[in-house]
Amino acid sequence: MKVIFLKDVKGMGKKGEIKNVADGYANNFLFKQGLAIEATPANLKALE
């Protein structure tokens, strides 16, 4: 799943980066902790 990092995550990515991560990792950790959001077309447009 493609995500946009909202904060730096050690060993994974930096704020503003777009990366592919495992679905479970994104849903169970990154999204719940507020560290990333899904890289949807609307979210990608908002990032620009």
Rank of each mutant, 00 (worst) to 15 (best):
K14Y: 11
L35C: 05
I37F: 04
E38P: 11
V9K: 03
L6D: 03
G11A: 05
F5R: 00
L35N: 02
N27F: 15
A39C: 10
G16Y: 08
A22Y: 11
V21M: 07
N43T: 06
T40S: 09
N43M: 07
G24K: 12
D8V: 02
L47C: 10
P41Q: 11
K15F: 09
A39E: 02
M12T: 07
F5T: 00
G11I: 02
Q33M: 15
D23F: 14
Q33F: 15
Y25C: 12
P41K: 10
L44P: 03
A36M: 03
G13P: 00
G24V: 12
V3E: 01
G13T: 00
I18L: 07
V21I: 10
V9H: 04
K15T: 08
G13K: 00
L30R: 00
K15G: 03
A42R: 10
N20A: 14
L47D: 05
I4T: 01
F31M: 08
K45P: 04
K7H: 12
M12C: 14
A36T: 02
A36Y: 01
A26L: 09
D23N: 13
K7R: 13
A39G: 05
Q33W: 15
K32W: 10
F31Q: 04
K14P: 00
N27C: 14
N28M: 11
V21T: 02
A39P: 02
I37S: 03
A46P: 06
K15D: 01
L35W: 11
V3H: 00
I4F: 03
P41T: 10
V9R: 01
V21D: 01
E48T: 13
E17Y: 03
L44K: 06
K19C: 08
I18E: 03
Q33N: 14
F5Q: 00
L44S: 05
I4Q: 02
A42S: 10
A46M: 15
K10C: 13
A36C: 05
N27R: 15
V9E: 01
A39N: 02
L6G: 01
T40A: 04
F31V: 10
N28F: 07
A26S: 04
K19D: 04
N27K: 15
F5Y: 06
N20Q: 13
A42Q: 14
E17F: 03
T40G: 04
L35K: 03
G24S: 12
A42T: 08
Y25S: 08
K45W: 04
I4E: 01
M12Y: 11
E17C: 07
K7A: 13
K14M: 09
T40M: 03
V3T: 01
A26E: 09
L44A: 03
F31N: 04
F29N: 09
G11S: 04
Y25E: 09
M12Q: 13
F31L: 14
K45F: 07
G13S: 03
E38R: 09
I4C: 05
G16P: 00
Y25G: 06
K15Y: 06
N20P: 05
G13R: 00
E38S: 06
V21K: 01
E48V: 13
T40D: 05
K32L: 14
A22G: 12
A36H: 00
K15W: 06
A42H: 09
E38W: 06
L44V: 13
T40L: 05
K7E: 14
A42Y: 05
N28G: 13
E17P: 00
I37G: 01
I37E: 03
E17M: 07
K2G: 04
D23S: 15
P41A: 12
K32R: 10
K10N: 10
T40R: 04
K45N: 10
K32Y: 09
L30Q: 01
G16F: 09
L47W: 15
K14E: 08
K19Y: 07
K10D: 13
M12N: 05
L47M: 11
K32D: 11
K2V: 07
I37A: 05
A22N: 14
N20Y: 15
Q33R: 12
K32G: 12
K14T: 09
L30E: 02
E38A: 11
A42N: 14
K15S: 07
I4N: 00
K2E: 09
G16C: 08
K2A: 09
N20S: 14
K19F: 07
M12G: 06
P41G: 09
M12W: 12
L35Y: 06
L44W: 02
G34A: 07
A26W: 12
A39Y: 11
T40F: 04
L6Y: 01
K14Q: 12
K7N: 08
K7T: 12
N20W: 15
E38N: 03
G11D: 09
Q33G: 08
A36F: 01
A22R: 12
N27D: 10
L30Y: 02
N27Q: 15
G11T: 03
A39F: 07
E48P: 06
V21G: 01
L6P: 00
K7Q: 13
K14W: 07
A46T: 10
D8P: 05
L35R: 02
I4G: 00
K10E: 14
I18K: 02
N28A: 12
G34F: 07
L44Q: 08
G24H: 15
G16L: 05
N43G: 06
E48S: 12
V9S: 01
V21W: 03
K15E: 07
V9P: 00
V3A: 01
I37D: 01
P41L: 12
M1G: 03
K19L: 09
V9M: 05
F29I: 14
D8T: 08
K2H: 10
V9I: 08
T40I: 05
E48G: 11
N20D: 13
A39Q: 01
K10W: 14
D8S: 07
V3G: 00
K14N: 10
G13Q: 01
I18G: 01
E48I: 12
A46F: 12
E17A: 05
V9A: 03
K19P: 00
K2T: 09
N43K: 04
A46Y: 11
K45E: 13
K15V: 10
F29S: 06
K2P: 07
E48A: 13
L6W: 01
K45A: 15
A22C: 07
I4R: 02
E17H: 05
E48R: 07
P41N: 10
